[in-house]
Write a protein that binds this DNA or RNA. Structure first.
Lengths: 173, 173
DNA sequence: CCGTATGTTCAGATTATTCTGAACATACGA
DNA sequence: TCGTATGTTCAGAATAATCTGAACATACGG
């Protein structure tokens, strides 16, 4: 990928990071790896993104924890090199699953308990029950994806109203 | 709802706010309104949540912009009172739609342009195309929901692997 | 018009997040 | 063993997000 194109991609992905709840540096490191055919060393990452080695090291650790980046050996080189996992959908749902575990599950527990308590009546009770349903559905979709990304992807594409795997832009109107 | 239960609900929802990308105060105001049968005035909100009137005012504005809270009149009272929109799923997707518009769409534009550029080749090009697909699917799902929440809700519940509207916990194993 | 009740705004304070860089750890060859 | 290359950690600096509170705006009754 040409350098300027890669550059713009890195920044676009970095800006999007906040949407998945990952920080800018982490998203930019991820983008750089996605935009590269070859494994890259920690030092080169820090240089290309103009961040400290410390920041690069921490960002890479987080990406490895997410399971979207992996370390590879380069013969006759002591340094660690990194590559991105090849499947973008898998990456996406690994990140989603990780966030779910960290942030969603604890809050779900709390709200779930409340919905079944005797405290609420009338409209409030109805809302809490609806909410518990909604959260359970979101949880179910994410779990389903983590178990079987392939078929879930198809299902989601169907919900989106487009044929599975169709890369062509649909005509509108 | 009993006060202590409401309290715990407010805090649980506040903690979950970051998941939808809304700030703690905004989420807590929202939770308080969800937990209340009656309309509440700005001043009471500020008092109950221990936040300043200024913060309460700004949070309510954001919630009105999201379309999840609405102002109501109380006869013979000059103050503004607020209630939450009744349908939780609608609320959820209004918030999602608003975030999409604010943060997702601009980034999507940038990445979309790049995917079709000549710059990328080989594995990198494949990844970019996959990513454009993924983002288009996510966009499609959200758009579909905004257009037709009812049937999309059913579709999503199906993807989640549970019969629509089934509130009972499924047996596992 | 004035005074009061209510709501909004925004500059600056507070708090939380992110980043740096130097100290430290590790592994290897000589 | 020592020196070098590399990676990690974490205290404190830099930055960003959030919140407060006082000044300001508005609307009403008198």
């Amino acid at each position: 990928m040409r350098t300027d194109t890669a550059q713009r991609f890195v920044e676009a992905w970095g800006a999007m990071g906040s949407l998945w709840g990952i920080n800018r540096s982490v998203a930019r490191v991820h983008a750089l790896l996605m935009a590269s055919e070859e494994p890259i060393s920690l030092e080169e990452i820090a240089e290309r993104l103009q961040i400290s080695k410390g920041n690069a090291s921490m960002s890479l650790r987080e990406l490895r924890n997410f399971g979207v980046v992996r370390q590879v050996e380069v013969p006759a080189d002591r340094r660690d090199f990194y590559v991105t996992e090849p499947d973008v959908w898998t990456m996406f749902f690994r990140i989603l699953g990780e966030r779910k575990r960290r942030e969603f599950d604890p809050a779900l527990q709390a709200i779930h308990g409340l919905a079944s308590e005797a405290g609420a009546t009338g409209a409030v009770r109805g809302r809490l029950e609806q909410m518990a349903d909604l959260l359970a559905t979101v949880e179910g979709v994410v779990n389903r994806f983590l178990q079987d990304p392939q078929s879930s992807r198809a299902a989601l594409a169907f919900v989106a109203g487009m044929p599975f795997g169709d890369k062509a832009r649909r005509k509108r109107g």
